[in-house]
Amino acid sequence: MVREIENSAGIPVVQIATIVPIMLTVGANRIVPGVAIPHPVGDPSRGAEGDRAVRRELLERALRAIQTPVEEQTIFTS
């Protein structure tokens, strides 16, 4: 899905998920590793504020990813 959206729309798609090898396999070009399979963009164990902070950081990283020129599949770890 990620690959075909990018292909048909011609716009960058950043995928946030936890199992990086799967994102590499399906052909995502911009990858942000998520927190956990059941809550990729949050961490409920850190309480409401901590959860939001984790989500904010991941989304800021995702926004950096879509502004970054890449030549090949790239994992944005920070």
Binding site: V2, I5, E6, A9, I11, V13, I22
Partner: peptide, 23 residues
């Protein structure tokens, strides 16, 4: 197919980028 359909719609609506989350 989902990706192709979604992509075409986003293109038509002038969307600039996508954040896609997966579990």
């Amino acid at each position: 197919r989902f990706g192709q359909e979604i992509g075409e719609r986003l293109k038509k609506d002038g969307v600039d980028a996508v954040i896609l989350t997966s579990t």
